[in-house]
Each structure stands twice: as structure tokens, then as C-alpha cells.
Simulated assay, not measured.
Amino acid sequence: MRVLVAEDHPVLARNIATGLRRQSMAVDVATSGDEAERMCQLTAYEVVVLDRDLPVLTGDEICRRLGRQPERPRVLLLTAAGELRDRVYGLERLGADDYVPKPFDFAELVARVRTLSRRATRPAPAVLRHDGIVLDPARHQVTVDGRPTELTPKEFAVLRMLLAAGGAAVPHRDLVRAVWDEHLDPRTTAVRATVSRLRAKLGGGDVISTDTGEGYRLCG
């Protein structure tokens, strides 16, 4: 899941981004309205967590502009303006999909972002299967030949993409965009290391192949 956090308070923006990344989301951060607009033009985000009081362009204006796009991300307004009239205005007049006043509970924010993401994309199969590997997205569980297998959030997200590809190769850049974010150093071995650990947990051998120039695929 790709998320943009548009928040001009650097500490809060960093904390939100870090927390969402720990939930297997790829998160970018914008600290002004014009930066947020530019990033939305370049990247297909599923959800934008948007502060209303951004500099240069306000979050209200960004929300209106996103609403005019034929294929737009879901917008969650996250703001200190928490009165009933503010929430009604944000949902009805600005066209936001959800509205969370500050201060907020982080677990609730994660749940709301996940809910918006499900609305933004076609529903994934309830359970993904391949040669004894079973991944249940709703329960966040993986079994291999019937045995529960513990995966890190990144490993789970990579496996989900590989399973969804149905045996086709998933390019390295697609994994970076969906599972990591724009700040990942292109020279890093993070993707390769994650795939290597995932391969070992799934039984080792050639369960995941590395196709030079194409990406990674599930074998069998």
C-alpha cells in the first residue's frame, strides 16, 4: 500500500510515517501543499493523510483538487479542527473520505487508512495460495504445508505481491514502490535481503527465483 502523509509538523509527520511503515505500508512525506500536489501527480497513492493547515497550498485546496481527478487517492483529513461543523465541512464540502481530529489514537488511524485502501483498490482474493503456501490477508497469517510461518511486515508484503502475480515475475522497482518508499537507496540490498529471508522461511531452495532483468517470481 502506498500512502502520502502531508503534514507540516516535522516530528508528527515523521512519527506517523514511521508507524505506518511498521504496518507494511510504503510511506512518502510532504511538508507543504505544493509539494503534496506535485507528489500526487507523480505517484499513484492509494491514501493521502492530509493536514488541512499546510503552507503554500492548504490541505483544503489539495483535497478539492484531488477530488476533480478521475482516478484519485482516498483522502483522510487529519487536523486540529475537530468540531462537528469542521468534520461535516471536510466530508461534505471538501470531499474527504474520512476525517480524524487531533489528537488521535494511532491504532485507529491505521485502521482507517487500511479501510480507505480497501475502498481505493479492487478487493484482493480472500486467501492467496501457491504450492502449499497460503496467505490470508485479512488475518495477516501465512502457512506453509499447513504449518504457521511468522513473517516480518516487509516479508509478508513481498510474499503477497508475489502470490498476487500468479507466477509472473514482479520487477524489483515494483516491490520498492509498493513495499518500501521513495527514500530507499536504489543501491541498497534491502529487497534482495528480504527475498532471501523469505525464501528461507518458505522452505529454501528455488521457491522464489531471481530472474535477471525481470525481477522475482514464485516457482512451482
Rank of each mutant, 00 (worst) to 15 (best):
residue 30 A to Y: 02
residue 15 N to E: 14
residue 44 A to T: 01
residue 30 A to T: 03
residue 136 D to S: 11
residue 175 L to S: 00
residue 124 A to V: 04
residue 48 V to K: 02
residue 37 E to Q: 12
residue 6 A to F: 09
residue 159 L to V: 04
residue 82 G to V: 03
residue 98 D to K: 05
residue 22 R to Y: 07
residue 145 D to Q: 14
residue 10 P to Y: 01
residue 193 A to P: 00
residue 166 G to M: 09
residue 64 R to T: 08
residue 184 L to F: 07
residue 43 T to A: 05
residue 75 V to N: 09
residue 151 L to H: 00
residue 73 P to W: 01
residue 171 P to N: 14
residue 162 L to D: 01
residue 214 E to V: 12
residue 181 D to M: 05
residue 159 L to Q: 02
residue 58 T to A: 09
residue 17 A to C: 03
residue 220 G to R: 14
residue 56 V to A: 10
residue 181 D to N: 08
residue 219 C to F: 10
residue 172 H to I: 08
residue 185 D to Q: 09
residue 29 V to F: 03
residue 162 L to I: 08
residue 138 A to H: 12
residue 92 E to A: 11
residue 96 A to M: 03
residue 196 S to A: 14
residue 186 P to V: 14
residue 208 I to K: 10
residue 118 R to D: 07
residue 70 P to S: 13
residue 67 G to M: 08
residue 20 L to A: 01
residue 149 T to Q: 07
residue 97 D to T: 06
residue 153 P to T: 02
residue 207 V to A: 04
residue 16 I to M: 11
residue 169 A to K: 07
residue 153 P to E: 05
residue 205 G to Y: 12
residue 161 M to R: 11
residue 53 D to E: 14
residue 7 E to Q: 12
residue 158 V to I: 15
residue 183 H to N: 12
residue 147 R to G: 02
residue 170 V to N: 08
residue 117 S to P: 00
residue 215 G to T: 10
residue 209 S to F: 03
residue 133 I to S: 01
residue 28 D to N: 10
residue 93 R to I: 10
residue 9 H to N: 15
residue 126 A to E: 15
residue 84 L to T: 07
residue 11 V to H: 06
residue 89 Y to R: 14
residue 220 G to I: 08
residue 137 P to R: 10
residue 196 S to R: 14
residue 134 V to S: 11
residue 169 A to W: 08
residue 148 P to A: 12
residue 70 P to K: 13
residue 218 L to R: 05
residue 48 V to Q: 02
residue 40 C to Y: 08
residue 57 L to I: 15
residue 37 E to S: 09
residue 103 P to R: 15
residue 99 Y to D: 04
residue 96 A to H: 00
residue 218 L to D: 02
residue 208 I to F: 11
residue 92 E to R: 15
residue 72 R to G: 05
residue 140 H to N: 09
